[in-house]
Design a protein around this nucleic acid. Structure first.
Lengths: 346, 346
DNA sequence: CAAATCATCGCAATCGGTTTCAGGCGGGCA
DNA sequence: TGCCCGCCTGAAACCGATTGCGATGATTTG
């Protein structure tokens, strides 16, 4: 019979069934005290019976609030972002917010499209870790920020702009702590595999390395540092290159876990023992660090905390709106080193 | 001056500026041939000038189509799902569909909430890999399917139901191929670390193992098989347990890469050489398989292909609607083994 | 007993586009 | 000249929920 347009039931349908008006139904479902308790329960029961599903986008359209957060990350299959997103969702959940996640695939072009898409979807706020090549199309973000749109950057944030609301970790401190740890373990000739220096996260890790070396009065010369480009194989090549130099390093601090692991592989292929002959320290605390052997020491970036905080700040900006300007402050998290077999001498 | 309510510009605003009607503007922006070329260009220019951003949800509300796909996975920080999602997005992009991703965290309760949320957001279709403990609340899905709502399951799909539209891989074939590979390499005493048998994916991998062993006339007894529960450490314990038995295995096929890796670790701690003394084969082809040493052979589940196909099928179901029933067919992908150091004798 | 106060609920506008229907206008053709 | 037709645009309904305002009847107050 009614197999035809079973379609969705709306508040009008249930209003009709009950001889009420849609507005009353709406109020009842929202627990509005202006409608009698009896009616409220009646409506709710009927809604359940008719398998009513509220149409969020209709409500969002009317209210101008969707209770939704948009998130843009370079790629969700990177462990770090996966965990950040988990943090974001946890916090959003508690506040009754939904989360939509998009990937920029590290393309600023696509990143812009995603911003438009999400805004078109009427998200109430945006959480973004910008693409690696996003360097110039920041006008978009300037506009958004100055228009008062709630936006929070995290991890990789625009630096060429004035201060933007963001939560980041102190990469320099991370680089410092990692190097300091190696020094404390007794290593003196410590090499650094650094990432592309136009990305401030890698630059800061490098600076932290320099800080620690200088503080300990250890020498750093051109032979101590090597720049790597891609993630995977380059660690092996980098190790071979470093090994050719003299004096040979006793420890290697890599700005990436990936190259640290492949570096270790190259070292072991040469019959070296880790950490007795050479120690390794990575950065990011990837999950696989516990799977490789020896397990790899690293610097944890507190992704879940980062997500939670960014989320909380965005939600606060949304719900408090209209107050005086929200300060474009940056929150800086402190990374924590995680010591494992690859660098533990005792 | 106008710093007050800069708010969003709507088609009404741009219609007003041009002395036109909103309906004309709408048509122009949609490239409707019914409006003259001149007007179309005029409108588009003005829209650009006024920085117009279409309100997708308003359009979706009116059309009943949001051009959006909802995806629910247990956790996006699992490499496999990350890649599936990538496939889904690629395909959706090409068809002009958006994708929003939610996580069930392997809770069927939360999974249900996500379904409601996404439907409230008016997604046009749903792609789901069900939570591990989703076993009984399938009524929801039965309803959805029979109501004609486009839905596609992938990877972990409900089995207690009749046939549901899904794209899965042939785990049994995967288990078979993996075991066959070890046999072809010359190993005879092959043990299997199997996963929880109430999950059909693990059950099928086990059956595939049996198939290959039987086909080759190799013996399988209670000592050949061990069941593991959690991912990480259990591989080491499992290996030790297997090693106590006699005869000792020459090769181990694990239903999970995680336990394979930790199993290898335990083997090497005992001074065994891999694959000379004992070979290892995992399942899922996790990215870290290339990072560990020796690199781990595994079975690739074709996540990107799976995502693309599921996406394409969902979109097809959406756009073709109204036709005769869409068959609830299952598409079965063939896994591919990836041979690496841990099992390559030659 | 009349006036005022509540408690409940309906009416209608609204959010921003989309779409149906109708109509104005100019040109072609008989 | 008259009629038909096609091109282009406007008016208005509509999608589903929210909400300000007003109406109703009941209850309380003076």
């Amino acid at each position: 019979m009614s197999k035809k347009k079973s379609d969705k039931t709306t508040i009008h349908d249930i209003a009709y069934e009950l001889g009420l008006n849609a507005s009353t139904v709406s109020r009842a479902l929202n627990n509005n005290l202006a409608v009698s308790k009896k009616t409220r329960e009646l409506v709710k029961a009927k809604a359940l019976e008719m398998n009513y599903q509220p149409n969020f986008i209709a409500a969002a359209l009317r209210r101008g609030r969707s209770n939704t957060l948009g998130v843009i990350v370079p790629a969700i299959d990177r462990a770090f972002f996966g965990r950040v997103i988990r943090g974001i969702e946890e916090e959003a959940d508690e506040a009754g917010f939904r989360v939509i996640v998009c990937q920029s695939f590290d393309s600023s072009e696509r990143e812009r499209e995603m911003v438009d898409t999400l805004r078109g979807l009427q998200v109430d706020g945006l959480l973004i870790s910008i693409a690696k090549d996003t360097g110039d199309n920041l006008k978009l973000y300037e506009k958004l920020i100055s228009s008062g749109f709630p936006i929070q950057f995290f991890d990789n944030v625009p630096t060429s702009l004035e201060v933007v609301p963001a939560v980041i970790i102190d990469d320099r401190q991370g680089g410092y702590a990692a190097t300091k740890h190696l020094i404390d373990q007794g290593y003196k000739r410590i090499a650094h595999l650094r990432g592309p220096q136009h990305l401030h996260i890698y630059r800061n890790r490098y600076l932290g390395y320099l800080d620690a070396m200088k503080e300990a009065g250890l020498e750093v010369n051109d032979d101590s540092v090597l720049e790597i480009v891609s993630h995977f194989d380059s660690g092996e090549e980098a190790f071979e290159e470093l090994w050719k130099r003299s004096p040979r390093p006793e420890a290697i601090f890599s700005a990436s876990d990936f190259s640290a692991v492949s570096g270790m592989k190259a070292a072991r292929r040469r019959g070296l023992r880790v950490p007795e002959d050479i120690a390794f320290m990575g950065f990011s605390n990837e999950p696989f660090n516990e799977l490789v052997s020896p397990t790899l020491s690293s610097v944890d970036q507190q992704p879940i905390t980062m997500g939670r905080i960014a989320s909380r700040r965005a939600i606060k900006a949304i719900t408090s709106k209209e107050d005086e300007e929200h300060p474009n402050d940056q929150l800086v998290l402190m990374p924590e080193i995680v010591v494992r077999e690859s660098s533990a001498t005792k």
